[in-house]
Design a protein around this nucleic acid. Structure first.
Lengths: 221, 221
DNA sequence: GCCCGATTTATACACTTGTTTGAATATCCA
DNA sequence: TGGATATTCAAACAAGTGTATAAATCGGGC
């Protein structure tokens, strides 16, 4: 009844590992089945046998990624009771940014997602719902608290976008590093400094928006 | 001596037009020569005949784009003499953002560049030097002025990145609009509001960074 | 009117890719 | 051990791609 005896489990796992690494590096389209099986030291047909087809394999990789991302989310999301909004924001950026920047085990899922962003496959939508939207919800809540009385749906959305965009910018990118090599903080120290910068910069930005006159369009609810 | 008689000039131009449109929509790799020639109502071999090969055609498209981008740059860059740094920053964002967001004639080059960013071809490097770096230089100068005494190379770079990332975030992206449809400002009015937000948010951020103690690491030069 | 170069056309070639096939081999349980 | 099942393997297939070729067609100047 064991669906996968010892040797089989080996190839199955080796393929999964190789696929994870390669898909993370290059994205779905730019990795061939032959690349994967060569890397995994398996036969070309092994992918069809174990995963149905290339997309089936990719789905399994992304499923692992989804579980990983949810675990990561739990670490970037601080309980709103017991912490000030400022603390939540700082903690969010401090946890999020290193995972975005670094390609190692801490953040591989974001590298994978980066490729999914430019060339979405059919798998994207479920991932968005399960792993991304909850984090955006949380961040929006924190921003709303920081805006206080001045909070409007538009302002919350715009400020959330400002924070999110400053973080996402650091997804590694061959082109970006061509434009300005220094843009990609290399050392842990540089990443930490950038995180502090984003938090500081954004808190000031939010306070400035909060300080604007409420205007005629404000709709408190 | 006319290198391209009437009919020939027609196909040449039709192919160039179709290629510009398709490359802008999908990027170099995801457009086939057959797509282009079908769209241009030309024969498959016309690309080889008129442009050597697919990459040669792409280079010509990107060359047009480069000239266009330089003209655009001139409009986003305000003379630093005669305008305050605040004015320069606001003008920069107001001009830059609409072109980033909209896929129409005003900003097609940025859509093309977006694909180049995720899948760089050999043409990227020269483009960076001629059209992107000058704009970054300008923005860095403005940020340096705004930071005043507090300016350090690291702070200038980080603040410039914060502004740039908030703008670049709005490059249209199928994935992003999946995450949050509202993120893509649709109307001219919404784009204008977002530009004002980014300017306001960033000016406050810069002032906050400028207000920090200079710290022991400051190296005025 | 006719010829020569420029252009267009249909077709073919070489290569890559994902997938299938059927035989060979390994593995497990009675 | 022996036979059924699971897994591996080499080879082939079909579709899509960029490019090359050689014949057909066009267009203007003598």
């Amino acid at each position: 009844m064991t669906a996968t005896p010892v040797r089989a489990a080996d190839t199955h796992q080796r393929i999964l590992d190789a696929a994870t690494r390669l898909f993370t590096e290059r994205g779905f389209a730019k990795v061939t089945v032959r690349d994967i099986t060569r890397e995994a030291q398996a036969n070309l047909a092994a992918v069809s046998y174990h995963f149905g087809d290339k997309l089936g394999l990719y789905e399994q990789v992304l499923e692992m990624g989804l579980r990983f991302a949810q675990k990561v989310n739990a670490e970037t999301i601080l309980s709103r009771e017991g912490h000030t909004p400022e603390e939540c924001l700082r903690h969010y950026v401090r946890e999020y940014l290193p995972r975005i920047v670094r390609s190692d085990n801490r953040g591989w899922i974001y590298q994978l997602l980066k490729h999914e962003m430019s060339n979405p496959t059919t798998v994207a939508r479920s991932y968005v719902r399960a792993a991304i939207l909850p984090r955006i919800e949380f961040l929006s809540g924190v921003v709303g608290d920081l805006l206080g009385d001045a909070a409007t749906p538009e302002r919350v959305r715009r400020c959330t976008t400002s924070i999110q965009s400053q973080c996402l910018f650091f997804l590694p990118d061959p082109f970006k590093s061509m434009v300005m090599p220094d843009w990609q903080p290399a050392t842990d120290e540089a990443i930490r400094e950038m995180a502090e910068h984003i938090a500081e910069f954004s808190l000031a930005g939010i306070h400035a928006i909060a300080g604007q006159r409420r205007g005629p369009r404000v709709r408190p609810r």
